[in-house]
């Protein structure tokens, strides 16, 4: 049993959980709710084991680095962060349906990582510039930030859908998704957390760049895109906190923000190129 085995199980569990969530959306049922929790936890345990084993395997190969060094490892670790943040958020807001829009993202990421031929899944050695603890801090904070943004993206979609439905048929269909006020609160809180984490991520990245390349900021595409994304969320925060935007407008801003996240994470690697060419 190696890391791939466990990560395979993880992908399967997440796909299964996603299906359960969809079912749960229409047929609320207490036992099913608990069952979803269980499959999520099993998935996360397998995921954690898989990542830990991959880390160990990299030591056995003589490289010895945390699994954050290529696109495959990035996708798997990012999914891990997202599940973790989702569990925390669902607990905090006592909502058991937030995952319905998040699990598709996680499942797609995991499936894409293991199935796409363009994502190589070998364990590779790190070039000297990447051998730094700052790399670990940098990537982990960024990924936790992305995870929070993914949650807010899910909540924003839910908000828009529910709001339209609520308008179309006044009360009745609103039972399926969480309450609009709760969604609005989740969108704000997740974005605030993500904003802080991405901010710290950008800062740790700058500290690391300063150690490795002798300059903390060089406007390379990945850096610039992360800053753009951060600016979008800064706009969101100002609009909401000081101009009192609520509801649809902020939900749309936060979806735009998540497009920024996706482009920073994937687009820059596939569409543009630069220093961060680990994919």
């Amino acid at each position: 049993m190696n890391s791939s085995f466990f990560l395979g199980i993880t992908t399967f569990m997440y796909l299964f959980t996603m299906a359960l969530y969809f079912y749960y959306l229409f047929f609320r049922n207490k036992i099913l709710g608990i069952f979803i929790k269980i499959t999520t936890i099993i998935g996360l345990l397998a995921h954690t084991t898989g990542l830990a084993m991959r880390w160990i395997e990299s030591y056995q190969l003589g490289y010895g680095h945390i699994p954050l060094s290529n696109m495959y490892e990035a996708l798997v670790s990012l999914s891990w962060c997202t599940v973790l943040v989702l569990i925390v958020m669902e607990r905090k807001y006592k909502s058991d349906i937030l995952g319905v829009f998040v699990f598709p993202i996680i499942s797609i990421a995991m499936a894409y990582a293991s199935l796409s031929p363009s994502v190589r899944d070998e364990i590779e050695p790190l070039i000297p510039a990447l051998q730094s603890n700052w790399l670990t801090y940098h990537v982990i904070t960024c990924f936790l930030g992305y995870a929070a943004f993914a949650i807010s993206f899910g909540a924003s979609l839910a908000y828009l859908i529910k709001n339209r439905k609520a308008k179309a048929s006044s009360e009745e269909s609103s039972g399926l998704l969480p309450d609009l006020n709760l969604l609005d609160e989740v969108i704000y809180k997740a974005n605030a957390v993500g904003f802080l984490l991405l901010g710290i991520g950008i800062i740790t990245g700058a500290v690391w760049a300063n150690y490795a390349w002798g300059s903390y900021w060089s406007w390379d595409p990945k850096e610039t895109w992360s800053l753009i994304t951060w600016f979008i969320y800064a706009t969101f925060l100002h609009a909401r906190l000081t101009r009192g935007w609520r509801g649809n407008k902020t939900a749309i801003l936060s979806i735009i923000g998540f497009c920024g996240v996706l482009f920073t994470f994937l687009g820059v690697n596939y569409v543009l190129s630069g220093l961060h060419s680990y994919a």
Partner: peptide
């Protein structure tokens, strides 16, 4: 808000 949006959009050019 206007400047944040302009900065975001124009920064794309250089990437």
């Amino acid at each position: 808000i206007i400047i944040l949006l302009i900065l975001s959009v124009t920064s794309i050019i250089g990437t």
